[in-house]
């Protein structure tokens, strides 16, 4: 290994260490664009690619356990949707941020009516969450309708 490459590796390691130490538990869904990087570090993931159009950017992260996470960031710089697909559920406390406990409560809430088993469907004016799948293949999607860019169809989030 050449000295130059070693130095590069060292500095990359130093940066990774700094980011890791400073990573706050800040919100992803509903948080600022900067929280996408917090999520990546927390999930020990790799940013696979970023795509952008006039209204939003999509950051695609592959977690260390092989699940793909896509975070949708509006032009205003807010994460308005997160999507995951892969063998294992990502850290939802990190990914859903401030919405996590609400989602957990909603999933546990006693129902007067019939309850779905094996899938999750939360459809409220300010928060929509759908989770499905089986062991070794899970899929989830969460978004905040109030933060979705105007004119964008929810079906685009996937």
């Amino acid at each position: 290994m050449t000295p130059v490459r070693l130095a590069l590796l060292r500095s990359a390691a130093a940066i990774a260490l700094t980011v890791g130490l400073s990573a706050p538990a800040a919100a992803a869904l509903g948080g600022s664009a900067a929280t996408v990087e917090n999520d990546r570090v927390s999930m020990q993931g790799a940013l696979m690619r970023m795509t952008r159009n006039d209204d939003f950017a999509v950051h695609e992260i592959r977690t260390a356990t092989g699940t793909m996470v896509r975070e949708y960031v509006s032009r205003a710089g807010t994460v308005f949707a997160v999507v995951w697909q892969g063998p294992w559920t990502p850290d939802l406390r990190q990914l859903l941020g401030d919405s996590f406990e609400r989602v957990q409560r909603s999933m546990q809430a006693a129902r007067q009516a019939r309850k779905a088993r094996g899938v999750v469907a939360i459809d409220e004016p300010d928060l929509v969450v759908h989770i499905s799948g089986h062991q070794r293949a899970f899929y989830g999607r969460a978004y905040m309708p109030g933060l979705v860019p105007s004119g964008m169809q929810a079906e685009v989030i996937r």
């Binding site: 019939r114 309850k115 094996g118 899938v119 089986h134």
Partner: peptide, 26 residues
Amino acid sequence: DSGSNGIFFLDSATTGLPICSLSTDF
């Protein structure tokens, strides 16, 4: 999946099927 208690597919916009007013999972 025998452990899921319905046929869970797509969404109202695609299927034209309305969501229940009480059992909102269905």
